[in-house]
Design a protein around this nucleic acid. Structure first.
Length: 465
RNA sequence: GGCGCGUUCGUCUAGUGGUCUAGGACGGGGCGUUCUCAACGCCCAAAUCAUCGGUUCGAAUCCGAUACGCGCCA
């Protein structure tokens, strides 16, 4: 049997980094077994639907190269085929569901009605209505919803192939889940089961947060007479601040990271290892390599914490792998500088960049002459003024890196100053910074005229004292 | 509150009864190279394997309880 996995996001605005990871594992699981990976948009919850987000999901998956097979399945369109309604009616007919006429309640209302601490699992109002009562209500124009008639005390269980454990529940703790709303739209619970069966999904891989609704699905699979797929639950990514990774604590959407200048390959590689590990400590994987080595055994069961510092490291690794042309193109999305300029300065800064965004801040001194703060910096350097005068003398005569180096060393030896101090004085005078690429590389690009102008503009006299 | 899942260096993890004085990576510290930074090379610190109890000749590895974390329901 061919493996079929699905990525089933809800279009609620953006692609969460955790969703991307789920998609990645689903993709890798299918592809590693020459299987099929499909995409299903779960958009039956009209309240949570955000226009444009379906397109965003397509776009993001493409950026990360998680290409799905078959055309995407859209639940709101499938509603029109009555597939969910038919399933709900079958359950009704077989006595596994009941009509519910209760008004939809908000969380707050339910809380108030039942008091805190009381878990209301059974629907007492409508579960036991007689056929006659139901008939009257419908005749009176009331639109019923359909809910699952959960058995009172049965055991439901399944083997989680990720957690590698048998997990079971007593149905007395499983609620009478809403299946079909009064507008005939299915809830997540019904739609997911009907679709996984209809699309012949062999392996359901989803986040741990769905584990508690699994007993409902298990009952539905049974009552609808579908065969149950393998089910496995993935860890949730935790925020270093505590709790699940959430929007208000920082970046969570894949777009956020992309906009911050991280390369898709780096993000993907980082995500791979947040919840899955190989046996051999290897860390760098392209998507293809990952598919090659991926297996469910390496999936973790403890929630990992999102550690941005490691992401930075991955980004640096991938940035170095790019050739100048690719890197230039990518950087040009994050700076106003023309590509010609980027190409020229890139060799000086590429080892120093962590993200694509860093180009501007690492090269700003090429475009902005160092200003007032320079005085302070200069004053701290012993003999700074004399150094600058010396350097000016050398550069005016010979604009050459080798000669500058030689003469600087000779000068330092004679005046008994450190070579490091000499170049630091020059560095600060020319760039206004204490950390830069090797000085001559910068001077060469600035040119003789600009370099000398910057040196002349320094408050050498004051700094000498 | 109820139900469920989890727990190895700060973080991601290797480890599936003796080979573990617990390995790797990120981060941190140090040294080297060096005009600074970065990069690179070498080295170091860092886990009583959550705790307690049990099984066993022997446990990070098996079992139980507790604690803590995370989630779901409402």
């Amino acid at each position: 049997m061919t493996v079929r996995t699905r990525f089933a996001p809800s279009p609620t605005g953006y692609m969460h980094i955790g969703s991307l990871r789920t998609a990645l594992y689903e993709y890798a699981f299918a592809k590693s077994q020459k299987g099929t990976f499909i995409l299903r948009i779960e958009d039956t919850d009209k309240n949570r639907y955000v226009p444009g987000s379906t397109e965003k999901i397509y776009e993001q998956l493409k950026i990360f190269r998680l290409n799905w097979d078959e055309s995407p399945y859209i639940q709101s369109e499938r509603v029109k085929t009555d597939i969910y309604k038919n399933a709900a009616e079958k359950l009704l007919k077989d006595g596994h569901a009941f009509y519910c006429f209760c008004k939809a309640q908000t969380r707050e209302e339910i809380k108030e009605a039942h008091g805190k601490g009381v878990s209301q699992v059974r629907d007492l109002n409508c579960r036991n209505l007689t056929a006659e009562e139901i008939g009257q209500k419908i005749a009176a124009g009331e639109k019923p919803a359909i809910r699952l008639k959960t058995p009172d005390s049965e055991e439901v269980a399944f083997f989680d192939f990720v957690v590698k454990k048998n997990i079971k529940w007593n149905t007395k703790f499983v609620d009478d889940a809403m299946l079909l709303k009064s507008d005939e739209f299915p809830t997540y619970q019904l739609a997911v089961v009907v679709d996984d069966a209809d699309m012949k999904i062999t392996h359901v891989i989803r986040a741990l947060e769905w584990l508690p609704s699994t007993p409902i699905h298990l009952l539905l699979f049974k009552y609808l007479e579908y065969s149950v797929p393998q089910i496995g639950h993935l860890t949730d990514i935790l925020d270093p601040e505590g709790g699940k990774l959430s929007k208000r604590k920082g970046n969570v959407s894949t777009e956020d990271f992309l906009n911050d200048g991280y390369l898709p390959e780096a993000i993907l590689n980082f995500i791979m290892l947040l919840g899955w590990a190989p046996k051999d400590n290897r860390e760098i994987f392209t998507l293809e390599e990952f598919v090659e080595v991926f297996n469910a055994d390496g999936l973790q069961k403890a929630n990992p914490m999102f550690n941005k510092v490691k992401l930075d490291w991955f980004d640096q690794q991938y940035m170095r792998k790019l050739d100048i042309k690719d890197l230039t193109n990518k950087i040009s999305n994050f700076t106003d500088k023309p590509k010609g300029t980027i190409v020229k300065l890139l060799p000086l800064v590429r080892e120093r960049m962590v993200t694509l965004k860093d180009f501007d801040s690492l090269t700003d001194y090429f475009f902005i002459r160092p200003q007032g703060h320079l005085k302070n910096a200069m004053a701290q350097l012993r003999g700074g003024g004399a150094v600058l005068e010396h350097a000016i003398g050398v550069l005016e005569k010979d604009f050459d890196g080798k000669i500058l180096e030689e003469k600087a060393r000779a000068f330092c030896a004679e005046k008994n100053i450190k070579v490091g101090d000499y170049f630091m004085a020059l560095r600060v005078a020319i760039t206004g910074k204490t950390a830069t690429p090797p000085l001559w590389d910068i001077i060469k690009i600035l040119g003789k005229e600009e370099t000398l102008k910057r040196l002349y503009d320094c408050p050498t006299k004051k700094a000498t004292t």
